[in-house]
Every structure is written in structure tokens, then in C-alpha cells.
């Protein structure tokens, strides 16, 4: 019953935003999968930080750095609702804002198993308003839309690309390390 209500609403939103007279490209339909996980590397931090990209604001001292490939329209900055990028149980932090290449560097808090946790773009909104309940519902929508995890082989390939876990003193040091990664994958502006 819930599915039958929510999906038509999303379709209606996409349809209305596609009406003529708007120069900003319409929002792609969601939930939508990413095209690929190009890179994955676990990290730990000596000093945890408060995570702004969810309503619960967990303290983050470990996680995963990913480089994703996706439809650029899903990554395009918008002032109103943007599709929320989920990895597993939480919205992921988009570290890079450039969208034309379709590549984005993201930071995923906490333990994530790419073989079993899906990566997808959910209902447009604000990551800071996503709580665990919303995230679970979004995950359900993704599953019903047949968005599956990338699988063990792809996960292992991405992790192999990323290399061994990295340790950083702080989030600042982590972000500094990601600069080169963004350039390497064409995710920098």
C-alpha cells in the first residue's frame, strides 16, 4: 500500500518539474542507482567529527571513501530538492561538487559492506533531515526499484583500487588527502 502511494507521488513530482518554462534541467526519477563504484578505501580518524549529513549527527571515526560514477543530472547542484545519495543506512557526504564528469568523491561514515549495502540516489530532499526511519524507508524503495548492491566482485575491485585502510589524524587531514583523489578521477572542478 505504501509503495503504491509513494511511487506515483515521485513520478508526479518529476513530471511536473519537467513542464516547459524551466531552464534548470528536470530532476531525474528516483530512486536511481549509481553507474559504478570506481574506488573504495576504508579510513580511520584519530579525532572523530560530527556528521552533518544525517538528522542523527553521529560521531564519525571510521568509514569509507568512495569514488562513484553516476548520471550527472543526479549530481547537479540545485537550490531546491536534490536526490539524496545513500550508501547503506546513511546519506553519504558528497565531498566534490563538480557534476559534469559524473564522478563524485564521497565519504561514508561507519562500517559499510559494499557487497551487501546498496548505493543509490533516493527521494530529493535534504540529507540533514534524513533519520534512520527515513533511511530505512528509502532503502525499501530502492529495493523495490530493484536497486541492488554492486556485489562482491565489484566491491573487491573498488577496494583493491583503493588499497589498504588509511589512518588520518582528523577530518581535515582526510579531506586534504581526498584532493588528489578528486583530481585523479576527474571529480574536481
Amino acid at each position: 500500500m505504501r509503495r503504491r502511494l509513494v511511487l506515483p507521488l515521485l513520478a508526479l513530482l518529476a513530471a511536473v518539474l519537467a513542464l516547459p518554462g524551466l531552464a534548470t534541467p528536470p530532476l531525474p526519477e528516483t530512486p536511481a542507482p549509481v553507474r559504478g563504484v570506481l574506488y573504495a578505501r576504508p579510513f580511520t580518524l584519530d579525532a572523530p567529527f560530527r556528521y552533518d549529513w544525517s538528522a542523527e549527527h553521529p560521531e564519525v571515526s571510521s568509514g569509507l571513501v568512495l569514488v562513484l560514477e553516476a548520471d550527472p543530472a543526479l549530481l547537479r547542484p540545485r537550490e531546491t530538492q536534490e536526490p539524496v545519495l545513500f550508501v547503506g543506512a546513511l546519506p553519504a557526504q558528497r565531498v566534490t561538487r563538480a557534476f559534469e564528469s559524473g564522478r563524485v568523491v564521497v565519504l561514508v561514515p561507519g562500517p559499510v559492506d559494499l557487497a551487501s549495502d546498496p548505493v543509490w540516489f533516493g527521494t530529493p530532499g535534504l540529507p540533514e533531515q534524513v533519520d534512520a526511519t527515513t533511511a530505512r524507508a528509502e532503502r525499501g524503495l530502492a529495493a523495490r526499484a530493484a536497486i541492488a548492491p554492486v556485489g562482491r566482485r565489484a566491491a573487491d575491485a573498488a577496494l583493491a583500487k583503493g588499497g589498504p585502510p588509511a589512518r588520518y589524524a582528523s577530518k581535515t587531514e582526510l579531506l586534504q588527502a581526498l584532493e588528489a583523489l578528486a583530481r585523479e578521477y576527474g571529480a574536481a572542478p
Binding site: 558528497r94 565531498v95 566534490t96 561538487r97 577530518k171 579531506l175 581526498l178 578528486a182 574536481a188
Partner: peptide, 8 residues
């Protein structure tokens, strides 16, 4: 904190 004007 990098990057300049590009997220993060």
C-alpha cells in the same frame, strides 16, 4: 579544509 569552493 580543501577543496576550495568544491564541497568538503
Amino acid at each position: 579544509e580543501p577543496p576550495h569552493c568544491s564541497g568538503g
